[in-house]
Design a protein around this nucleic acid. Structure first.
Length: 308
DNA sequence: CTCCAGGACACTT
DNA sequence: AAGTGTCATGGA
């Protein structure tokens, strides 16, 4: 067991802000949280006086030592002060005050394939149902692991490999996607395009590749539109300039910044218009990062929603 | 029985 | 291109 204290950011809100559907609580007391990264079980332990501690079963995670992993996975290398420009704070002082408690929320640099599949499950559904689908997918098609914790066996499942989803039959995968066979087939097709090499997610991580080209490549897959594509780009390909717009983002853009109209339908043109406006308000290079903080604040504080 | 949930897509102008 | 209905499903 390897341990690493986690300090300097808001771990709980980061894990449960809805960007990842693979972090869960072990028990109702919420003192232990777990996630599976790169097939490695990570535990986050919360003690009253000693804060948060990351516990891993291996010395390395995702080929990195723990310090480097934490730095990278939790985006601790990104300057928080650069997220919201000086003009933003001056123009919207009340919003700036409102989001103060959420400035510690980080973007998780997640696995690209996991992000691709899990956000394909997110179309037009509530987070509760999304998490359920992802849990079922891992249980049915992921690798089963058993570890002994507190003298009791604890079972978890790593996220399915592209090969296992590519080989799945639609009926059994449909049981994981609310019996939505269209979505099940879309996921299988996407997994097959990864296996065949027709879609190369690693290549899309190239920071020099134009955002437009990446978006176009992802949208070529059935079941992926502009919003899901931007989520994959932000959380899975780690391009913080990508700014996904969903119903919640549209709401806070209209209410907080008088950008667009909530009632206006989100056509492609309007979607791009909102993105331009948001980039103008925020630091364009980090618009998605800042947007996620605004998103989480809007949901939790204004809408009183909880994603777990 | 309605209505909603982090959209996507086919189908007309 | 750009705008407008339709779709699919479990849960509250």
């Amino acid at each position: 067991m390897h341990k690493k204290p986690l300090t300097g950011f808001d771990i709980h809100n980061t894990l449960f802000s809805g960007q990842s559907f693979r972090w869960n609580h072990i028990d109702r007391s919420n003192k232990f949280t777990y996630g599976i990264i790169e097939h490695d079980l990570l535990l986050i332990e919360h003690k009253k006086n000693s804060g948060y501690t990351l516990v891993t079963t291996n010395k390395t995670v995702g080929g990195k030592n723990i310090d480097d992993f934490v730095q990278h996975y939790f985006s601790l290398d990104t300057d928080v002060d650069a997220l919201f420009p000086r003009e933003f704070k001056a123009r919207f002082p009340e919003i700036w005050t409102l989001i103060q408690p959420y400035l510690g929320v980080k973007i998780l640099r997640q696995d690209a394939f996991e992000t691709l599949i899990t956000f394909m499950c997110a179309q037009g559904l509530g987070m509760q149902v999304i998490r359920k689908q992802v849990t079922y997918l891992a249980r049915e098609f992921g690798k089963k692991h058993t570890v002994i914790m507190n003298n009791k066996p604890f079972i978890y499942y790593s996220f399915p490999s592209p090969e296992s989803l590519a080989a799945a039959n639609p009926e059994s995968l449909g049981l994981c996607t609310n019996n939505n066979c269209i979505r099940a087939n879309n996921i299988i097709t996407a997994a097959r395009s990864i296996v065949s090499g027709r879609l190369d997610l690693e290549a899309l991580k190239d920071p020099h590749m134009p955002l437009e080209h990446i978006r176009k490549t992802l949208c070529a897959l059935l079941g992926i539109g502009p919003k899901i594509a931007d989520c994959i780009i932000l959380f899975g390909l780690h391009r913080f300039s990508a700014f996904p717009i969903d119903t919640h983002v549209r709401q806070y853009l209209a209410v907080w910044f008088s950008v667009g109209d909530v009632l206006q339908s989100l056509t492609q043109k309007h979607y791009l218009f909102l993105q331009e406006q948001a980039a103008g308000l925020l630091n364009p290079e980090l618009a998605g990062f800042a947007g996620h903080i605004l998103f989480h604040c809007w949901r939790k504080k204004v809408k009183q929603l909880y994603s777990y």
